[in-house]
């Protein structure tokens, strides 16, 4: 808990220092104000507390130790209870956010910087929906990774690699809007944008009207794709355990 809050505080300062130097040296950006980037960075850190909850971690450990056989015998779907567990942990992340947000705001206020509030209640609502969709994409991605453990047993290094690439292409640190245009297009079309860049851009009011709706719809498509993929792979992997006898 303290580690998380301390880590957020340090990073809020780091991003503030970084972006203020870059904006002071290179002048303003037409599509992204200094206030926008600070808001983006702080929100990315905070929603990161939710996304970093790795519920399917339990599955990975259980498959490795063989205990998964016992869970498979229980009369409840394993992916379902892992999901319930992840939602519970995300609830705890909300408590952390409630503590970290005032700290971040206070820290920034010391430097005379403020983060923006959502432009309207509708934007705020769309942001919350978008974070929820991002949470689902992220969850099914983690579940997919954990499911691969049925075949490989050891996946920790691979999963970390996927995490680095995800956070890069999701715009967790640098907004996709700052990438070179061709890369932006690729990254925005990738499922990873649904995790960070979509909700944060919605919050900042970068999408309006039909564009806002199509962004949410694309996120929903990715949720379905990853859910179907993860659950299908789960079925196959589960059968493998049954065949091997645990």
């Amino acid at each position: 808990m303290f580690t998380h809050i301390g880590s957020i505080a340090l990073r809020v300062y780091l991003y503030y220092a970084l972006w203020s130097a870059l904006y002071a040296n290179n002048g303003p950006q037409q599509s992204f104000s200094f206030k926008d980037i600070i808001t983006y960075s702080v929100l990315a850190l905070l929603v990161g507390l939710i996304y970093n909850v790795d519920g399917p971690y339990v599955v990975r450990e259980k498959i490795r130790e063989g205990n998964i056989a016992i869970d498979l015998m229980r009369p409840i779907s394993v992916p379902l209870y892992v999901f319930a567990d992840t939602v519970g942990q995300a609830g705890f992340a909300l408590v952390q956010i409630a503590v970290a947000l005032p700290i971040a705001i206070g820290l920034l206020a010391l430097t005379g910087t403020h983060i923006s509030a959502p432009a309207s209640p509708l934007i705020a609502l769309a942001f919350l929906v978008s974070v929820a969709l991002g949470f689902l994409v992220n969850f099914f991605l983690d579940l997919l990774m954990a499911t691969i453990t049925f075949w490989t047993m050891e996946i920790f290094g691979f999963q970390l690699m996927v995490q680095f690439i995800t956070s890069l292409l999701a715009g967790a640190v640098v907004p996709l809007q700052f990438f070179p245009s061709p890369v932006t297009a690729i990254a925005q079309a990738s499922p990873f944008a649904a995790i960070y860049n979509a909700p944060l851009s919605i919050y900042l009011g970068k999408y309006q009207g039909p564009e806002l709706l199509s962004t949410l719809a694309l996120q929903a498509v990715w949720v379905v794709v990853f859910a179907v993929g993860a659950l299908a792979l789960w079925r196959v992997g589960e059968r493998r355990v049954v065949v091997q006898g645990g």
Partner: peptide, 10 residues
Amino acid sequence: LTMNRFPIMN
């Protein structure tokens, strides 16, 4: 990527 739009950092 950070410095793509911001070519100079101090």
